[in-house]
Design a protein around this nucleic acid. Structure first.
Length: 282
DNA sequence: CTCTCATTGCGTCAGTGGGG
DNA sequence: CCCCACTGACGCAATGAGAG
C-alpha cells in the first residue's frame, strides 16, 4: 500500500525533526536561558592565528550524554581542532544550566590525539551500534549530577501509569472491548480484567500449571487469559516507551540548541580574539 | 462544505537483550 | 533456556490544515 511509504516518511521525519525544529527555534526560549548561564563558565585557550570564518561542528559521544562528557569538535579551516568538552547535562529540560565548558586546542600533528580520535571513533561506533533504551539514556542523563530528579517511573504521577503492571494494581486500566469501545477498570488488578471471578494475586494465576488444566476449554481459557494479560502489559509498555521516546527527543532537541548556542558563542569569541591579536595596520 | 494529505497517537506483533 | 521488558515496525483511526 502507499500508506506504508508514508509511514516510513513519517518515521524518518521523526529522526530528522530534531535538527530542523531546533533550527526554527534557535532564537527561542532555550537560547535565552542558556545565554544567561554560559558566559560565566567559558574559558578559551585559542591561538591568535587560524581563526575560522566558518567552522565544522560535529558532536562526538553520540551527543546524548551517556555518562561521558559530550564533546563538540570544532574543526577550524586551519587544521586546528577545538574540543568543547561539556560535562553531562542531566536534564536540559528541567535545568537549563550548563555545568561547565572547557575549550582546548589540539594541533593536527598531535599523534596521540589522532590515535585517541581513532579509539574514540571506535567507541562511538560501538555505542551507536548498540543504542541503549530511552530509560537508560535518560537515567544516565539524570544520574550524572546529584540533585536532579530522575526521569523514570516517578514520572508516573504525571500520567498515572504504574511502573510495573505485573506487581501492582492498575489505577486506570483501559480495556478495549470487542466492539472497539474502551472501558476503564478502575483499581482492578490487571489480571482480573478478563477473569473477574478470581481474586487471587497475579502470581497465583500465573502459577496455575498447565498440568492442572485437563479440560481443553480450560486450557483455551488460560491461553486467552495469558494473551490478554500479555497484550495489556505490552499496551502499557508501548505507551511508556512512546512517552520516553518523546522525552528523549525533547532532550536531544534541547541539547542541540545548547550546542548551537555554544558554537555561535565560540565563533564570536574567536573573532574577538582575532581582532585583539591581529597586528594593527594603521 | 468536501476532499486530500500530513500528523499524531494507539494497539499489536516480532525481534532482541538481560536476568533468573 | 525461559520469561520479561523494551522497542521498531506496521496498520489503523482521529484530527487539523490547506485547497478546490
Amino acid at each position: 500500500m502507499s500508506k506504508c511509504g508514508r509511514k516510513k516518511c513519517i518515521k524518518t521525519n521523526l529522526r530528522q525533526m530534531t535538527m530542523e525544529t531546533i533550527e526554527s527555534q534557535q532564537d527561542g526560549s532555550v537560547t535565552a536561558s542558556v545565554a544567561e548561564n554560559e558566559s560565566a563558565h567559558m574559558q578559551t585557550q585559542t591561538g591568535p592565528n587560524s581563526i575560522p570564518t566558518l567552522a565544522q561542528v560535529s558532536v562526538a559521544g553520540s551527543g546524548t550524554g551517556r555518562g561521558s562528557p559530550a564533546v563538540t569538535v570544532v574543526q577550524l579551516p586551519s587544521g586546528q581542532t577545538v574540543h568543547v568538552i561539556q560535562t553531562p547535562q542531566p536534564s536540559v529540560i528541567q535545568s537549563p544550566q550548563i555545568q561547565s565548558v572547557q575549550v582546548t586546542t589540539i594541533t593536527e600533528t598531535d599523534e596521540s590525539a589522532e590515535s585517541e580520535g581513532i579509539i574514540d571513533c571506535h567507541k562511538r561506533r560501538e555505542i551507536l551500534s548498540r543504542r541503549p533504551s530511552y530509560r537508560k539514556i535518560l537515567n544516565e542523563l539524570s544520574s550524572d549530577v546529584s540533585g536532579v530528579p530522575k526521569i523514570e517511573e516517578e514520572k508516573s504521577e504525571e500520567e498515572g501509569t504504574p511502573p510495573n503492571i505485573a506487581t501492582m494494581a492498575v489505577p486506570t486500566s483501559i480495556y478495549q472491548t470487542s466492539t472497539g469501545q474502551y472501558t476503564t477498570t478502575g483499581d482492578m488488578p490487571a489480571y482480573q480484567i478478563r477473569a473477574p471471578t478470581t481474586a487471587l494475586p497475579q502470581g497465583v494465576v500465573m502459577a496455575a500449571s498447565p498440568g492442572s488444566l485437563h479440560n481443553p476449554q480450560q486450557l483455551a481459557e488460560e491461553a486467552t487469559r495469558k494473551r490478554e494479560l500479555r497484550l495489556m502489559k505490552n499496551r502499557e509498555a508501548a505507551k511508556e516507551c512512546r512517552r520516553r521516546k518523546k522525552e528523549y527527543v525533547k532532550c536531544l532537541e534541547s541539547r542541540v540548541a545548547v550546542l548551537e548556542v555554544q558554537n555561535k558563542k565560540l565563533i564570536e569569541e574567536l573573532e574577538t580574539l582575532k581582532d585583539i591579536c591581529s597586528p594593527k595596520t594603521d
